[in-house]
Design a protein around this nucleic acid. Sequence first.
DNA 1: ATTAGCACTCTATCCAGGAGAGTGCTAATC
DNA 2: GATTAGCACTCTCCTGGATAGAGTGCTAAT
Lengths: 348, 348
Amino acid sequence: MKLDERKRFILKAIIDDYIFSAEPIGSRTIARKYNMGISPATIRNEMADLEEMGYLEQPYTSSGRVPSDKGYRFYVDFLMKNEKLTEKEISEISGVFKKKITEIEDVIEQATKVLSDMTNYTSLVLGPQLNKSSLKHLQILPIDEGKALVIVVTNTGLVEHCFIKVPIEFTGSDLTRISNLINSKVQGLSINKITPSLLSKLKKEIINMDDVIDLVMNITIQSLNKLDGNKIYLGGATNLLSHPEFKDIDKAKKFLLFLEEKQILYNILTEASFSNEDLVVTIGSENKYELVQDCSLITTTYKVAGKTIGIIGVLGPTRMDYSKVISVVDYIKLIMNKIFSELFNDDK
Amino acid sequence: MKLDERKRFILKAIIDDYIFSAEPIGSRTIARKYNMGISPATIRNEMADLEEMGYLEQPYTSSGRVPSDKGYRFYVDFLMKNEKLTEKEISEISGVFKKKITEIEDVIEQATKVLSDMTNYTSLVLGPQLNKSSLKHLQILPIDEGKALVIVVTNTGLVEHCFIKVPIEFTGSDLTRISNLINSKVQGLSINKITPSLLSKLKKEIINMDDVIDLVMNITIQSLNKLDGNKIYLGGATNLLSHPEFKDIDKAKKFLLFLEEKQILYNILTEASFSNEDLVVTIGSENKYELVQDCSLITTTYKVAGKTIGIIGVLGPTRMDYSKVISVVDYIKLIMNKIFSELFNDDK
DNA sequence: ATTAGCACTCTATCCAGGAGAGTGCTAATC
DNA sequence: GATTAGCACTCTCCTGGATAGAGTGCTAAT
């Protein structure tokens, strides 16, 4: 049985209302609010149909109706109208990113904050995954006797450092020489091109320095991995406490602890982005992890030159303002694409 | 009127019990639990006295008694017995710090985590304040045409970096020369020694490079400031939700938002540490900020070579296990002192 | 097909009553 | 004079019943 025009209208009305009020919606409410020219009784019949078809649920006998996950899915896919951001919202978002930005991390942090502020839900951002990034420059600086600092710079402008121990007899120019050698061999290579065989070739060229080479290369690889963007940024965790879904303190606590499990968040984000869709909405029980099965997640990927380099998402209760969140997520994605494209091209 | 032995015993018994149970304590409870050889009626009289003197309070007429802030103060200063950490706790704490530690930030993060885990309250750590730290090494690396990376290393082993724009005609050796010049003048100087007059002297020596010098020095100063440890680390914020004091979701939310105000936390921590005491306990209304006036804060400072370089603290409800927290804070402070002394001496 | 009418269901709220914990006071006791 | 038993009293918390309110489902009329 397909949903006719009237059923769709009623379903949409109920979900719109429920998203706003968080209370079960009754037939009279709908009849009063939308002047449809039909009586509550008719609406009741339609609602009974919609329930039988699985789009609505009743918290208890003869209470009002509440959308089911299937209902939300239909709403998101077919009913919801595309809400445009207001001028004010657009300027608010743009304003945040107007400040001059030098560090990639700043962009991410701003995005995280503005995502949660604008939606009043919790935002998740997966930092740029730069396994497509490559080594731009490597430098070993002498610091103390027997101690040196390795600096790794990627073509994407990320910098990582680490102290290492070196044989005490090494001078600064020794280290510079090693840096130059490594640079000449490895510069421009992406991380997955730096293989053991390459390393052993390198070692042959720098005789008697095996230990240092090993150490430096390990650190380089580690650094590149570290910069690989596996870091999850989290914003507005406390926002969730304003929603009635989390009025139970125990549930709220469980959820906040859940948000500290970065590995799980990482999985959730990346799994969602496997889809071909540009923007993915995962509703309630569609989620794998039990604790978020009464939540919905809206994610999208940000890109540079057509390549996905990271993910942003918003997590909130299933009763989420999908339209609003989709608009915000989409707009912020666009801004991030722009900023990163500029940053990376600048860097070439 | 001074507190005689028996009043002290009763006050201590009530506070001990209340810290454990979070319920108002009645005379019968005390009589039954501690076989004092006196009847509940006698204890009742003593409790009435203690209330009149301001050490106890009654939530409502003829309910049991609850400690007042004054009561807690007396308890902390005179009554509380010094709880020793168990073997298990000691090995648990030490275990966390056993992993090899290379970065100062790791130490701080570990300390934050273990502080909150061991106490089940919220931990605050103010990172090493290194305005006593000095410039160890400065290096400008060419990255792209017209673009360079400034690396600043302090004697305390912290590293900061920043990209700058340089005149396009500068070569790598130009930059190295500038680095060397700056190094020779500024190396070893603490940040407050880097004055405008010193800078203008520097500029005279490197003619025609005013702009770059300015830029680099600004970044150096900024970096040193940034490394200055004003960063607040926060641990176990959700721990507070387990305590009945925060069972009201609204209060919990307010509190969690409060914990995001790093500037205020910074003030709270530093103000507490102005005291001459090694370990400072600030109880309830002794706190300046209204939102924490039903909380207590226990802070201490960690040092290197007798110099205070940072602060650690635990924030929890006034009904806090003072004895336990003091032991934990104290022990972790000792470990941090040791680790930092080693780290910094290593660095000389 | 729609709707008015009505009986019915379930929740939430209010209120009264009783149990329970605890106090304060008084008078008796040590 | 300190201590205590006894007792009336206070206040909270829990329970259960009564009621109002929102909303449904069904039936019969339109």
